[in-house]
């Protein structure tokens, strides 16, 4: 019996090594040296936003991903933050829910027999378990600039060519849009924009907020940042007393209906915390406050960049607006 088992095991080992693809060695963001397949065929990821969504866009062989759940979205079924809102992606037999993004179920991952596992560097306490299943790469995926991270990820899964093709679409549209801006506005730096989300505790303003930051900077718009406002961290909220410092040609806020923040609620938060808000700042006064879907702002995908580009173009360059007097 034992001999038979060994024979089978050896046979299996031989066949699988014959099938095994080439590997290469990389160092992840925690300093682990990982040997990963050059073109992985079965990928499992923990984070849905910065890992699963871009891989789905690339068409990578993603077979399992971490989920989130909320009664108000996707009929209460588990969803992939980003991809479900952007592409309507659902979990099914080909894309398995492996549990909550910060604490996935290792047994489900093992059952999927992945050849590459990607996790977030700040939620990597199960690294040892996961690397017993397959090569595991821990990525600090929120730290690098968005475009840089998308390129790194595509390289990790051996899909740089696909990534370049997607980025080419964005680069092409960007060049076109610049022409539109040049025609309508002249110097895009004359247009000031700010991204600010109102919460009851204060106004969330970031230095770097997803696709909005990338596209606004690529277009050369003047962007008001948290640093400009003298905020110590990205995570504090700006006091409503300083709302006038957000005076810009355009203010962008975001709504996330399934977290109880539909667009009307966000406007309500602005108005209830800043009496006379509609007349106070230039943007709301002139109908130049735009509320976009937060899934779009936080989308880790070239598709998100393209859509944001279209939003900024139609809101700023393809219509008349009242410029803020100097």
């Amino acid at each position: 019996m034992k001999t038979l088992v060994w024979a089978t095991a050896t046979l299996f080992a031989v066949t699988s090594s014959a099938l095994a693809q080439d590997t290469r060695t990389v160092t992840d963001d925690l300093g682990n040296v990982v040997e990963i397949p050059v073109t992985p065929q079965r990928i499992v990821v923990s984070r849905s936003d910065c890992l699963a969504t871009p891989l789905i866009e690339l068409g990578a062989p993603l077979i399992g991903a971490g989920s989130m759940q909320d009664d108000r979205f996707n009929n209460g079924k588990p969803f992939i933050r980003g991809a479900t809102a952007l592409y309507g992606t659902q979990f099914d037999a080909d894309l398995v829910d492996i549990g909550f993004i910060n604490q996935p179920d290792p047994e489900i991952i093992a059952a999927l027999e992945p050849d590459l596992i990607l996790i977030a560097a700040w939620a990597a306490d199960n690294y040892d378990q996961l690397s017993a299943i397959a090569p595991t790469y821990a990525a600090a995926c929120f730290d690098p600039p968005l475009k840089e991270w998308l390129a790194t990820l595509a390289d990790l899964v051996g899909m740089t060519a696909e990534h370049d093709r997607l980025m080419a679409s964005y680069t092409f549209k960007l060049a076109n849009t610049r022409a539109v801006f040049a025609d309508r506005i002249g110097d895009p730096a004359d247009v000031s924009v700010v991204f600010a989300d109102p919460f009851d505790e204060g106004i969330y303003v970031a230095d770097d907020y997803g696709t909005f930051t990338v596209v606004a900077d690529d277009l050369g718009l003047s962007r008001i940042t948290a640093t400009d406002l003298g905020m110590l961290t990205d995570n504090g909220n700006l006091s409503f007393e300083l709302v006038e410092e957000l005076d810009a040609d355009f203010i962008f806020s975001s709504h996330q209906s399934f977290f109880g923040q539909p667009p009307s609620h966000q406007m309500e938060v602005w108005r209830s915390n800043v009496p006379g808000f509609d007349d106070l700042l230039h943007a709301p006064r002139n109908n130049q406050l735009v509320i976009v879907d937060r899934s779009l702002v936080r989308a880790f995908a070239v598709d998100g960049l393209n859509t944001m580009l279209a939003v900024l173009t139609s809101q700023i360059a393809e219509r008349d607006f009242v410029p803020l007097a100097e």
Binding site: P106, W122, T233, N235
Partner: peptide
């Protein structure tokens, strides 16, 4: 309250009793 939200979540999860990651 004022740290990065993802990191705070991860720390909270670990603190809530993380028998899941032991070896």
């Amino acid at each position: 309250t004022y740290g990065d939200i993802d990191r705070a979540m991860s720390a909270l999860g670990w603190l809530a009793g993380s028998v899941h990651s032991v070896g």
